[in-house]
Design a protein around this nucleic acid. Structure first.
Lengths: 346, 346
DNA sequence: GTGAAAGCGCTAACAC
DNA sequence: GTGTTAGCGCTTTCAC
């Protein structure tokens, strides 16, 4: 392995000079710089990551903590998120370490203790997420990709689900709908549940109330606060089917659940429901999914890439300046009308 | 930060003893061991990763190289793969570094040079993948998650697509089908294309020939060797639609393309095609997808988790013993009959 | 069984 | 502008 010492010898300068050519080239004369660069190229030198990390106490690595769910419950867009995070992090000079562990709290502690990463991104934030406290206690710069009930002073970045819900409800109201079913992602069970689903639901219900629209929300879980009429199982297609059967008179449907959106055509087929003649449909869906799956519904797109970039950006700023005030960034997108919501008259 | 020196002082022993308590406890007397362990707990000690890596020249980190495709073309199961790899790697004491980079060859070289990782997993292997040569030249222990035309002596792990194709073709033949359409993943363009699609197609065509079944394969790309009848665009739903319209008399369909499988119900709906009355359908699909998407077709499951585990396992063995012979591991699964292939009589 | 000490490769005062 | 040098925290050889 080629070290800085080899390069120094080859170039006829000291280690310091070589080191500065790498980190602060302006501090070195053009002449030595050239000599050193030539020597590096000739010898095929690259910095030793571990040595630099030890010396600077910076690993230039970001950790991303994704819950180690089983295959069946994993978000279908996780790959897109991870790759977007990685791409952008690398652009900023950081590597991305994938910290998926069945025990999230322990993973946070380990990451903080071992100093393997300079900062932490926590994905799939639940309403009452124990990893948030663990991160605060660990003292590692952390940004939450999602919004918990209490961020405890950490930075948060997410899609603006509240606004997406408002946009969708308004779209229906403007077309004369007075009665809508909302099918959102399961909110989890005892452990708090995915908070984005809660945020979407609350916002949708509130906006419906404001506009005088009746909003039907089938119950997904045991721990829901808002009342509903039917308990729904985990299979997204089955959940959609039951939701529709529970409210046969309703002609408007909002879906905020990737899996249910993908299953929807199949379910409509089984039930003989035509869109939008029999049923108006609009969804909130990641653009990564919509582009590929030819989802033909009016939608508020969720811009994964932007969310990922803002997340990395926020984390790096936090690493560089621990004292800056905590910030919340919500990314929103306009609604794209694809004609799947019919106009109704009364 | 608590170091080994602090622990040594607290426990009243030397650094060496502390170090051995961590790595080879049997070498230390039970008495000192206890003292040291107590001190570690009291002070909250954890090893410094960078220091250890520098000292041992091992990072205990595995790199995974996934092509930085745009959102629209990314595999929908990538998240499941990455998490499965990470989970299993952690179980084996390794971390997983996500190396997605637009320039795969450069990423391989960087990874090899910087010694940031002890080994490399290369995903989405194409038929003629330049990253394979780069990995060999880089000298980093590497396993290919996929099978290229020439593995150049590297280990390879993948789903047994050849066998899956045989299983599916036989299933149709046994039910009296004499004419089948095969829709597989696009094989890419100038750069070689996803080899698993090629392997599946070749195996399917060969088995069909053996059994006297006519296999229709719509052309996906410009660079196909086997003749076909229709050029298909990239949108999976559109590709499926055109494939069906190109062969209106055929009543059997094999799909080996996740996106097309997801789009299928929607397309059948649009075309008024009933399964299996009008069309028999069977697919090769990752279990992660099938479980969640209620894909109701007879299928050969692709076991992502097993593939991920074998991959990590193979890589770690390679790291531990560079001289062992290269190995290819193909994972296969039985066909699950879900009744979507009708029996036809002649 | 235990400890002293020499690195691992790099960075960053500090002196010149 | 350049070089000397003292670490960063851990592992490991070699005496004892």
């Amino acid at each position: 392995m080629v070290t800085i010492t080899d390069v120094a010898r080859e170039a006829g300068v000291s280690k310091t000079t070589v080191s500065y050519v790498i980190s602060r080239p302006s501090r070195v004369s053009a002449e030595s710089r050239d000599k050193v660069r030539r020597a590096m190229r000739k010898l095929g030198y690259t910095v030793n990551h571990a040595a630099r990390a030890l010396s600077t106490a910076r690993s230039m690595t970001l950790g991303v903590l994704a819950p180690a769910e089983d295959e069946a419950s994993m978000s279908i867009t996780r790959g897109a998120y991870l790759c977007a995070l990685s791409n952008f992090a690398r652009l900023k000079g950081y590597d991305l370490l994938l910290l998926s562990d069945p025990d999230g709290v322990r993973a946070v502690r380990d990451a903080a203790d071992a100093r393997k990463v300079d900062g932490l991104i926590i994905m799939d934030i639940r309403r009452d997420d124990p990893r948030v406290r663990a991160a605060v206690e660990g003292g590692l710069p952390t940004v939450l990709l999602g919004i918990p009930a209490d961020s405890m002073g950490l930075d948060e970045v997410d899609t603006d689900f509240e606004r997406a819900a408002v946009q969708l409800v308004r779209h229906f109201a403007e077309r004369g709908h007075r009665d809508i079913v909302l099918l959102h992602s399961p909110e989890g069970t005892v452990d708090g549940g995915a908070n984005f689903a809660v945020r979407f639901r609350r916002s949708a219900v509130a906006e419906a109330e404001r506009l005088g629209v009746t909003m039907r929300v089938p119950v997904c879980d045991a721990d829901r606060e808002t009342g509903g009429t039917a308990a729904l199982p985990g299979d997204p297609g089955e959940r959609l089917r039951r939701a529709l059967e529970a409210f046969p008179e309703v002609a408007g449907l909002i879906i905020d659940d990737d899996n249910a959106i993908l299953a929807a055509p199949q379910v409509f087929l089984e039930l003989g429901v035509r869109v939008p003649e029999d049923m108006s449909v609009a969804v909130a869906v990641p653009n990564a999914l919509r582009a590929r799956m030819r989802i033909p519904y009016t939608a508020v797109d969720i811009d994964l890439q932007s969310v990922a970039e803002e997340t990395v950006d926020t984390l790096i700023r936090r690493i560089d300046d621990a004292s800056r005030p905590a910030m919340t960034r919500l990314i929103s997108q306009p609604l794209s009308d694809r004609g799947s919501v019919a106009t109704v008259s009364h």
